[in-house]
Design a binder for these strands. Structure first.
Lengths: 227, 227
DNA sequence: TGCCCTGTTTGATTTCGATCAACTCCAAAA
DNA sequence: TTTTGGAGTTGATCGAAATCAAACAGGGCA
């Protein structure tokens, strides 16, 4: 793992456009950015482990991060995949300062790190910062609840269909996009074994979905909606 | 549904001890309490429905509330059960003002209602209020993530065992407690059909758990931990 | 060009929990 | 006391996805 002390210009741009900081007036955002450190990780690097003391929370600058629970018997369950502009582990600011989950890079990743103590201090001085943090927490909370509901209500092909639809532009009748990460990562995100994801894609052929490597083509978006 | 305009003394006590308000200095908490309204609901009353405009979020004073997603084909998936002192739907302060889920009372319930606009205003003036809200969001986020992980890693009997353990005092070798709500509600909370919960309880007999109505007795807490 | 290595797919089997149906239990009402 | 209805249990069956195993594809590299 290599740490970079200063943000470069491009990274600063990404960060200012992230869900968290974009909520803030630019002067405030810049003040926070001044205290950010950058960490660059290799693929498959651990970022933190459950049980560890939590000194930072993070916004992804480039690449994808996998957050998961490790069970006693060594199995892993993903609870979230985070990409550029997304913030994760902000929860540690309020849960006793210990990570409850593990995080690992899926590929080469650069992260912006916020010091928990520093941000607490900022938040106690400027209400806007607290509000931006709340917006981020709230976003992640909604996603988590959505995930529980999706897991409990839908079959594997339906969940895959949902995921595909989230990546289609509204009001398009057909669409095509490229998966931003490995299929095995998507499988984990959807709570599936890789084999089940593969079979789900096959099942969606009948709904006009074709897959070539990471390219996904949707013939009839509306047909997919009521799969 | 009957609305009560003023909190009585006992309700005020409960509210001040809730997870949300107990984070605040008492002067601040009292100021917020002044703006709270109380709603009392019959059993099975809808509190709000997904898609509705969200004017309030809530803290439970007495009783239990079920929050769930309603699917297109009419099935329901619980995403949380909230009891006295717990706050739900705070997410609506930041997600566009629309409820993403349904909420319904499980029994007769009294709720404290916070007006979203009012609370936003308070939070923008006093950083401590934002921080208390964040603590509440963070608590609910952790619970949701925990739930995803639990669903994905554990079988029905294991999830039931986890639930039971959460209701046992630490360091006790044996324990006994009373379910605070119907078994069918617990089943939903754990993402199970009622039949599956029943069978899970039977499976736990071999681990020293016996169930009589709502009374649950655990012979050997440690045995249950590595079930 | 051929050979790994890794990620993905396909096939066969098993397991878990949903579903449907019948039955028990109990408490409240008549 | 009997009746009735809801909650919970038990049994039988079915289906979805995990698991295990093997084949397959494609990119990087010798």
């Amino acid at each position: 793992m290599i740490k970079v002390l200063k943000l470069n210009v491009r990274e600063k741009e990404i960060l200012l456009r992230s869900y968290f900081l974009s909520e803030l007036p630019s002067a405030t955002a810049l003040k926070i950015v001044d205290h950010v450190t950058v960490a660059s990780h290799e693929a498959r690097d651990p970022i933190f482990k459950q049980g560890e003391k939590a000194d930072y929370f993070y916004t992804v600058l480039t690449g994808f991060v996998r957050v998961f629970r490790l069970s006693k018997d060594g199995r892993e369950a993903d609870i979230g995949i985070y990409g550029p502009g997304e913030t994760f582990a902000e929860g540690v600011m309020f849960n006793g300062g210990t990570h409850r989950f593990c995080a690992q890079t899926a590929e080469a990743v650069t992260l912006a790190r916020y010091e928990v103590d520093k941000l607490k201090q900022f938040a106690s001085q400027d209400p806007a910062i607290g509000i931006a943090l709340m917006a981020s927490l709230s976003r992640n909370l909604d996603q988590a609840l959505e995930c529980v509901a999706d897991d409990r209500l839908h079959t594997a092909p339906q969940r895959v269909a949902n995921f595909i639809l989230q990546n289609c532009p509204e009001n398009a009748s057909s669409a095509r996009f490229r998966l931003p990460f490995q299929k095995s990562l998507l499988a984990g995100k959807l709570g599936l074994a890789p084999e089940a994801l593969s079979r789900a894609f096959s099942a969606l052929k009948s709904a006009g979905v074709s897959v070539h490597g990471r390219i996904i083509e949707i013939g009839d978006v509306n047909a997919l909606r009521n799969f």
